[in-house]
Design a protein around this nucleic acid. Structure first.
Length: 265
DNA sequence: GCCCTTGTTACGCC
DNA sequence: AGGCGTAACAAGGG
């Protein structure tokens, strides 16, 4: 599922269309702004691509298009999919799953297309999206700021870290992976964390997120989709005799180690 | 054919 | 007002 890492991979692929001009735009009829997007984009040039959390931003000379990939949306640029197989999605690229197709003008820069292919149909396209409600991007975490935010919340840490207004870009798998690597129990009330623990969590994010980005994304961690299903012994190199367990917080499946992520550590 | 999966939003309740 | 918990949503895959 496209979390911040996947969207960063998409962003890098989308840089290929900077400088091109949109010839035509096709948008899934069910999108709230389908007609606005169809009429706004033709004739516009791409001046840059950006990302905030899970939101990809395509900057045009007059507008900004926000793309949220839901849980299964794949970006395809000039026929190339930067992420071939996405967990919980499909590796097929069926034309009837195209939800957004931007075709570029061959007479003005390069031709080609930028597509969002999404079997689940949960991708969302927004003209000039509001980004003020999003929290710190997952690559810009700051221990003091995060500690202050967590201190006001009584909900389980797992739930609060998934809140996009606290940290933008962390999804279900990344939160589990970071808490697993940092050795912190996801069930703890967010405000029970010490500053030391928040610092450990942020240090883990700073070291592991770039590594996972380089090795393909959110499912490149120790708690990959296969082990999330099978559970079994803890795969952490420093943990001996731990067992993985599955719990649900805020309706989200959470995998953690009974031993090295215990509250009493 | 049922159940699981995801991120976000819409509720009701406190 | 806003935090918290839960349901609902789409639809492919097991």
């Amino acid at each position: 599922m496209p979390e911040g890492l996947e969207v960063e991979i998409y962003r890098r692929a989308a840089e290929a269309v900077v400088g091109r001009t949109v010839a035509s735009a096709e948008v899934d009829e069910r999108q709230a702004q389908a007609s606005e997007i169809r009429s706004a984009l033709p004739g516009c040039s791409v001046v840059g691509v950006d990302r905030v959390g899970k939101l990809l931003l395509i900057d045009f000379d007059r507008w900004q298009l926000g793309i949220h990939f839901g849980m299964a949306g794949r970006l395809i640029v000039d026929g190339f999919a930067p992420i071939e197989t996405l967990a919980y999605s499909s590796s097929q690229d069926r034309p009837d799953w195209d939800r957004l197709v931007l075709t570029f003008d061959p007479s003005d820069g390069a031709a080609g297309t930028l597509r969002v292919n999404d079997p689940r149909r949960w991708s969302r396209f927004t003209l000039n999206p509001e980004v003020d409600s999003l929290g710190t991007d997952l690559f810009d975490l700051d221990p003091q700021r995060l500690y202050a935010l967590l201190g006001r919340r009584t909900a389980p840490l797992k739930t609060v870290l998934l809140d996009q207004s606290v940290v933008a870009g962390l999804g279900n798998m990344l939160v589990d992976e970071l808490l697993f690597q940092a050795g912190i129990d996801p069930s703890r009330p967010a405000r029970s964390l010490s500053l030391d623990e928040v610092e450990r969590l942020v240090a883990t994010a700073r070291s592991h997120l770039p590594e996972m980005l380089a090795s393909g994304g959110s499912d490149a961690g120790l708690l990959h989709p296969g082990i999330r299903k099978s559970l079994g012994p803890c795969p952490h190199p420093d943990c001996r005799g731990g067992q993985l367990q599955r719990q649900v917080f805020g309706g989200r499946t959470t995998v953690s180690c009974r031993k090295h992520q215990r509250f009493d550590r």
